[in-house]
Simulated assay, not measured.
Amino acid sequence: MLSRVALRSAIRQTTALVARGSATDVSGVRDEKNFPRPVRGEPGKVRLGFIPEEWFQFFHSKTGVTGPYMFGLGLTTYLCSKEIYVMEHEHYNGVSLFIMVWFFIKKFGPQISAWLDKEVDKVEANWNQSRVDTIKGLENAIAEEKKAQWRAEGQELLLDAKKENVLLQLEAAYRERLMHAYLEVKRRLDYQLEKAVIERRIAQKNLVNWVVTNVTAAITPDQEKQTLDRCIADLSALAARQ
């Protein structure tokens, strides 16, 4: 039976949580407006050292200001007159102890209260400091993660630059080999041209020598003498004209 009650209570709580929604939005940030952070509660106001103020407010709307006091006095009178509460020696010990405690509270209560408030504030500050440190650590981790992402992007740029450098090196090697092939072909063509020029020069020289040799061999001594005389006559005629 108790297990069924517990199960139903858990279902109701889960349904209520789903109906209210989550305390965080899609980005993971807490919704401070609809789900404010819990604040440390302060003790309520009391009268006579231990009676809550709400009790007096409850009686005030029905009996006025003196109602709570008259109710307490009447209840005490009723308990004592009917001997429901017997005044024996422990009663007087309790009264004396109550007077001592009341005097102690009046005398040292403010100092003790201030000291306890300071201790509570110190504990709360430690808790808040722990939360602030955690948030700061997470923010630093997020900053480091963003810096790591930025560095990773820089590595991608570096890889692109290296790829571009490799492509430039390949292009330079291709152009170097192309120039080497061009120079080799030009050198071979120049060799063939120079070879053809030399062969033509040698052939021309041989032909001239052959013609001169044949012509020289075909001239007789008489023809040579006639030619020499004719040349001398021509020179003499030219000298006379001068």
Rank of each mutant, 00 (worst) to 15 (best):
K225A: 14
E90C: 02
R131L: 14
W127P: 00
L138N: 10
L138Q: 13
F50L: 13
C231N: 14
A181P: 00
E90V: 03
Y85P: 00
K62A: 10
V46I: 10
L168W: 00
A239R: 15
N206D: 13
S22F: 02
S236C: 04
E164Q: 14
A203D: 07
G154A: 09
W55Y: 15
H180K: 14
A148S: 11
H89P: 00
A148N: 12
P38G: 05
L178A: 10
G94T: 07
A196V: 06
K225V: 03
A217K: 15
V212P: 00
R20T: 04
K195G: 12
V211A: 08
A172M: 05
Y69S: 12
W55V: 15
D25P: 02
V65D: 09
A141V: 04
L228C: 04
R40Y: 06
R20M: 06
E88S: 06
E144I: 08
G21E: 07
V132G: 01
I142G: 02
K118H: 07
R40G: 01
E156F: 03
W55C: 05
R187W: 01
S96W: 00
Q155M: 09
H91N: 05
L73T: 04
D25Q: 10
E90T: 07
E32H: 05
R230I: 02
L116H: 07
R8Q: 10
E53N: 14
I51R: 09
D160A: 14
P110S: 10
R40Q: 07
R4G: 10
K147M: 07
Y69T: 11
L138A: 08
Y78K: 11
E145R: 11
L48V: 03
E53T: 09
A239E: 14
A125H: 09
D234R: 12
L170Q: 14
A23G: 04
C231H: 14
R200L: 05
G109H: 03
A10V: 04
L207M: 08
V39A: 13
T63I: 00
R175S: 06
A161S: 13
E171M: 02
V101E: 15
L170A: 09
V18C: 06
S3L: 12
R151D: 10
L97A: 11
E194I: 03
L167H: 05
F103S: 12
K146F: 03
V39W: 02
A196M: 07
K62V: 06
V132H: 10
N206H: 03
A203N: 08
A114Y: 04
L189K: 13
T134Y: 05
F56Q: 13
Q149D: 12
K162Y: 03
W55P: 01
R47I: 06
G28Q: 09
L2Y: 02
R188V: 02
M179K: 15
I202Y: 02
P68G: 06
S130A: 10
A143P: 00
A240C: 01
P68V: 06
F108W: 12
R40D: 07
A19H: 07
G21F: 02
K62W: 01
A173T: 04
L7W: 05
K136E: 08
